[in-house]
């Protein structure tokens, strides 16, 4: 178990560097530079700017310097927000994304898992069909459609909730609902499928034969096995939710990481893009690791060799 975890942690480093390398290459290939503006720069000034940021060096040297700093966890200063370091910007914008992401995660988990369990227990009932139809709808409607529809109805039609912006609990409801929708739908379907399979297995029959109450059978024996597909799905999903969701943050003007990330790409703000990408990839890998470890606790059949 320990060697497994150690090996996985060691793997995170080269993986993150690989992701950073690919991202760096993509930014370099993209047309336009961070200093482009509508005013044409005189060649001498452009040369000065390039020299200041080391862009006059050969590419392999620039790459080496970048990798060296990134390996130290130092992404340098943003090229757009002068005097602000990338780490500072990430930590400043993370709380907004994380608040919405965590709330959406737990809401999606509660709604999805409970709807999935009930649907599985009352298979082919009206509730099952209703819940699965709703889940199908939730899965099929992308959040860039769901968000504006919610805004249109609840904010601009009924004037109950603010249409956008950060501030107060009322401002959280719409973005969280938009985010949670797709995840809740997916989790509900996964839970239902997992539970249906597990509840028919032999060890559940054994548990019932032992005379255990239906609640214990369901929660202690059934859920542990039935929820495994959900766990493997929600690990990376939580990382993605925490690190900011571009579309929802855009729709609701939330100053989170996703919004900043898009802005950074549009500005060709190389250090900031690299910083956010590295942060996001490490987060996803860590959550994947946590998911893999938790399998062992959830399902006694899984062993780490």
């Amino acid at each position: 178990m320990l060697t497994f975890i150690l090996r996985r942690i060691l793997l995170i480093v080269p993986m993150a560097l690989l992701v950073v390398t690919v991202t760096w290459g993509l930014i370099r290939v993209a047309p336009g530079t961070f200093y482009d503006s509508e005013k044409k720069l005189p060649p001498a000034i452009e040369a000065n700017i390039r020299a200041k940021y080391g862009l006059d060096q050969p590419w392999y040297w620039q790459y080496w310097l970048m990798i060296k700093n990134v390996a130290k966890g130092d992404f340098g200063d943003s090229l757009r927000y002068i005097g602000q370091s990338v780490n500072e910007i990430i930590w400043r914008h993370l709380p907004y994304s994380a608040t919405i992401g965590l709330l959406a995660y737990f809401i999606a988990l509660i709604i999805g898992v409970s709807a999935g369990i009930i649907a599985a227990l009352k298979q082919n009932s009206r509730f099952d069909y209703g819940a699965m139809a709703a889940a199908m709808l939730g899965l099929s409607v992308p959040n860039f459609v769901l968000g504006p529809i919610l805004v249109l109805v609840l904010a601009l039609g009924l004037y109950i909730l603010p249409p956008a912006r950060w501030g107060g609990i009322s401002g959280l409801i719409l973005p969280v609902a938009t985010l949670a929708g797709v995840y809740a739908a997916y989790i509900a379907r996964l839970t239902r499928a997992g539970m249906l399979e597990v509840m028919r297995s032999d060890y559940i029959r054994t548990a019932r034969a032992k005379g255990l109450s239906e609640t214990v059978v369901l929660l202690k024996h059934g859920l542990r096995g039935g929820i495994i597909p959900v766990v493997s799905y929600t690990g990376p999903a939580l990382a993605a939710l925490l690190a900011g969701t571009v579309v929802v943050e855009r729709i609701f003007s939330i100053p989170g990481l996703g919004n900043i990330f898009i802005q950074a790409v549009l500005n060709r703000d190389e250090p900031l893009v690299l910083g956010i990408v590295a942060f996001l990839s490490i987060l996803i890998m860590v959550f994947n690791l946590i998911v893999d470890i938790s399998y062992g606790f959830l399902d006694p059949r899984i062993r780490y060799e």
Binding site: A30, P31, G32, T33, D36, K40, L266, N267, R268
Partner: peptide, 11 residues
Amino acid sequence: MEFKTFLPLLN
């Protein structure tokens, strides 16, 4: 096209 692609093209 996106702004930063458009600017060099324009210039």
